[in-house]
């Protein structure tokens, strides 16, 4: 079995913010072309701040842990701050990932970006 950090295992075993947000302000659905995993991220935005964030993931333990971590990291952040979060930030917050699993953290970064883009697009059309 792969050597995951305790933090990864902890988030994998007890993922935070699992599920859907009904009436989300932005939804990002991304897939991993490498191994075929899928992540969906939902955000609720108020006054340019991410008030709530949830996820659903079909993937490995690293994908689940990075999804969980990224939702924690963006909650309460401004949109701009959230966009600064990279897969490295997520991986580091989890105490690192095995080399072969770095691509899983990319999914988390792309997921949050996609959700924010979706939010901006919807907002644009609202105005």
């Amino acid at each position: 079995m792969l050597e995951y950090s305790e933090k990864v295992i902890e988030h994998f075993r007890n993922p935070r913010n699992v599920g859907k947000i009904e009436n989300a302000d932005g939804v990002g659905k991304v897939g991993n072309p490498v191994c075929g995993d899928v992540m969906v991220i939902y955000i609720k935005v108020k006054d340019n701040k991410i008030e709530d964030c949830k996820f659903q993931t079909f993937g490995c333990a690293a994908a689940i842990a990075t999804s969980s971590m990224v939702t924690e990291l963006v909650k309460g952040k401004d949109i701009e701050e959230a966009l600064n979060i990279t897969n490295r930030t997520v991986a580091e917050a989890l105490g690192g990932l095995p080399a072969i699993k770095y691509h899983c953290s990319l999914l988390a970064e792309e997921g949050i970006r996609a959700a924010i883009e979706d939010y901006k697009r919807r907002k644009g059309s609202d105005d």
Binding site: M1, I9, F12, R13, D37, F58, G59, C60, A61, I64
Partner: peptide, 14 residues
């Protein structure tokens, strides 16, 4: 269906 093998294996290993 709808779940991934590694995540099941890690939980089984536990």
């Amino acid at each position: 269906k709808y779940v991934e093998g590694e995540s099941m294996l890690i939980n089984l290993d536990r």
